[in-house]
Computed example of a mutant assay.
Amino acid sequence: MEKEVFYKAFLERDSSFEGVFIVGVKTTGIFCRPTCPARPKIENVEFFPSAKEAMLSGYRPCKVCKPLEKLGNPPDGIKQLLKYMEENPTVKIKDADLQEMGLEPNQVRRWFLKNYKQTFHAYQRMYRANSAFQRIQSDQNVTDVAFDSGYDSLSGFNSMFKNIIGTSPQKSKDKRVINVTHVETDLGLMIAAATEKGICMFEFADYKLIDLELRQLGEEFNAPLIQGDNPHFDTLREQLNEYFRGERKDFNIPLDLAGTEFQKKVWLSLLQIPYGCTTTYGKQAEALGKPSAVRAVANANGKNKISIILPCHRVIGADGTLTGYGGGMWRKKKLLEFEKENMTTSH
Results as ranks from 00 to 15, higher is better:
169 P>C: 07
25 V>H: 10
147 F>D: 01
311 P>A: 13
294 V>W: 02
116 Y>V: 13
185 T>C: 07
67 P>A: 03
204 F>S: 05
277 C>M: 12
250 D>G: 02
336 L>Y: 06
225 L>M: 14
15 S>Y: 08
178 I>R: 02
199 I>K: 05
237 R>E: 15
95 D>R: 12
125 R>I: 03
26 K>A: 05
297 V>I: 07
330 W>F: 08
93 I>W: 02
231 P>M: 10
114 K>S: 05
157 F>N: 03
212 L>T: 12
18 E>S: 07
22 I>Y: 02
62 C>Q: 03
4 E>M: 15
52 K>A: 09
45 V>E: 06
221 F>R: 10
157 F>T: 14
196 E>S: 10
36 C>Y: 10
67 P>C: 04
178 I>H: 02
316 I>M: 12
293 A>M: 13
6 F>R: 11
202 F>W: 05
304 N>Y: 04
150 G>K: 09
257 L>K: 04
200 C>H: 07
27 T>N: 08
269 S>E: 10
116 Y>N: 00
152 D>V: 10
330 W>Q: 11
61 P>H: 04
23 V>H: 02
145 V>F: 00
313 H>W: 09
233 F>T: 09
132 A>C: 11
72 G>H: 06
129 A>T: 14
54 A>G: 00
17 F>K: 01
182 H>F: 14
270 L>A: 06
94 K>P: 01
170 Q>F: 13
35 T>D: 11
44 N>I: 02
68 L>W: 03
237 R>G: 05
228 G>K: 08
220 E>G: 13
312 C>L: 01
300 A>K: 04
13 R>I: 00
263 Q>L: 04
275 Y>P: 05
161 F>T: 12
251 F>I: 14
141 N>P: 02
81 L>K: 11
95 D>W: 02
304 N>Q: 05
316 I>H: 06
343 M>F: 09
230 N>K: 04
90 T>Y: 14
229 D>P: 07
45 V>W: 02
272 Q>I: 00
152 D>P: 00
21 F>Q: 08
155 S>D: 14
151 Y>S: 12
219 E>I: 15
161 F>C: 10
6 F>D: 01
14 D>K: 07
333 K>R: 12
295 R>Y: 07
183 V>P: 07
149 S>V: 02
245 R>C: 12
289 G>C: 13
331 R>T: 08
102 G>L: 12
320 G>Q: 08
160 M>W: 06
38 A>C: 09
53 E>P: 03
58 G>Q: 06
68 L>D: 08
303 K>L: 15
77 G>V: 09
71 L>K: 11
45 V>K: 07
83 K>G: 01
324 G>W: 05
50 S>E: 15
285 A>D: 13
99 Q>V: 15
232 H>P: 01
302 G>H: 01
281 Y>C: 13
238 E>L: 08
261 E>Y: 04
174 D>C: 03
207 Y>M: 07
4 E>N: 12
203 E>I: 11
222 N>A: 15
28 T>H: 00
302 G>K: 06
105 P>V: 15
331 R>H: 05
133 F>S: 03
134 Q>K: 12
130 N>S: 14
16 S>V: 11
199 I>E: 11
